[in-house]
Amino acid sequence: MVRKLNKDKKVLMISVYAAIAFSGAGIVLGTLFQSQMILFDGLYSLISVVLSLISLAAATFMSKNDSRHFPFGKDVIEPLVITFKYVIILILVIGSLMMAIVSIFQGGRDVAVGAALIYVAISTLACLIIYRYLNKHASESTTGFISAESNQWLMDTLVSSGVLIGFVIAAILQYISSMQALVPYIDPLMVVIVSLYFIKVPLVEIRHSMREVLVMTPDNELTRKVEDVIYKIELKYDMEETILRISKVGSTLSIEVDFIVKKTSKVQTISDQDYIREEISTKIQDIDHTKWLTVSFTNDRKWAI
């Protein structure tokens, strides 16, 4: 676990360095070209730097063993950090949307379209390369930090792609005399379109992370896999009832099983109980999460609820 977290930190540092470069270029060139969209891209990258550093600090903290103060682990830090990251992104998106709407009502913005077009083309390609790099490592990571970083760069790639299309349209309109009056509106209009599209992403991710912070049952295939294993065990050993609780926090999947045993159940000794625990552990070992498994047996239902 610690080795994988250290690998995650190295990958996160690549994201930090890239975000620093993009933020500096975006803010300077966005101001120079009078482009609200490029400035938005630069500010997004600047915030990404801060958020990436927070993820890096969280990954470093989680890699340090401290079972005395955190007897159940530090996994809750991961969804808390991810929630914070997406709240900040949501604030940026909403703020940019409002500024763009104001700009449209004020007559748009005159942008150096040619120079901006070159910058955005390079930016789009670079963002795509970084996204693919992070996405590759996200599938190998045991935490959600790399996945969250990958999502940030995917958003940036799609933003840059949309901006590129917008500037291509603006460049074409410049050569059509009857359409030239529309050119100043292209830049803020792109911000509006991109902002409306990306409001959904942080909202969905915040919802997923908050489910983990609140220790709710996972709303995905994980729950169905575990339920299938446990209820087959219930039938196999003729249990009276089974109470199953599942939660996912960070990379840890917590599974608590309480079997209500009746007289005819095929479990009578502690050895029988341990055998069932081992059977459950074996059948869920293909689930790619750190598992915290607790299996209890009782004749009285009150001890299971």
Rank of each mutant, 00 (worst) to 15 (best):
L92C: 12
L293T: 10
K302M: 08
P188F: 04
I101F: 01
I287A: 03
E279Q: 13
A112M: 09
V87E: 07
G162A: 09
A116C: 12
W153A: 03
Q152N: 12
G107I: 06
V226Q: 07
K262E: 08
T242L: 00
Y119R: 10
K74G: 11
N135E: 03
V226L: 05
D286I: 03
S271C: 08
I172G: 03
Y133S: 10
T142K: 08
D286Q: 10
G95A: 14
V261N: 05
Q273G: 08
I305F: 08
I122D: 05
S150A: 07
I101T: 00
N6T: 04
V50Y: 09
N65Q: 11
G114R: 12
S209D: 01
L51R: 03
H137L: 05
E241D: 00
V16H: 00
M216I: 03
D228E: 15
F105H: 10
Y237W: 02
K200N: 12
T269L: 00
R301K: 15
F145Q: 04
S141N: 14
M99D: 06
A21P: 12
F72H: 12
Q273E: 13
L97D: 02
M99W: 05
S96V: 10
T143A: 01
T264R: 00
F167Y: 10
M37A: 15
I199W: 04
E234C: 05
F198E: 12
K266R: 15
L253T: 07
F22E: 11
I193D: 09
S251G: 13
E221F: 05
S251V: 06
T157C: 08
I287K: 01
P218S: 06
I270D: 12
L29M: 14
V163T: 06
Q34S: 15
D288T: 10
I305D: 14
Q36I: 00
P79G: 09
A58M: 05
V194N: 09
D187R: 07
V194I: 15
S123Y: 14
I77N: 06
I260K: 00
L203D: 02
T60L: 11
S45K: 02
E234Q: 14
G42S: 02
R132M: 08
I77T: 09
I104N: 08
L29R: 02
S15A: 15
K85S: 06
V163H: 11
I169V: 14
D219F: 02
L32N: 11
L12I: 05
I82V: 00
R68G: 10
V87K: 09
R3F: 11
A138C: 01
G42F: 04
I287N: 09
I20K: 07
F72N: 08
L235P: 13
L182I: 13
S251W: 08
S296Y: 11
L80V: 01
I270C: 08
I243G: 11
P71G: 14
I47E: 09
Y175A: 07
V50N: 12
I77K: 09
A58K: 06
L164N: 01
E205S: 03
V2D: 15
S52M: 09
V111Q: 03
R211L: 04
H137T: 02
M13F: 13
F33W: 11
V229L: 06
G95T: 08
S177A: 15
N151K: 01
A115E: 00
F145S: 03
F70D: 12
I104A: 15
K7E: 10
L253H: 00
Y131R: 04
I270H: 13
S150R: 01
S296K: 14
C127F: 05
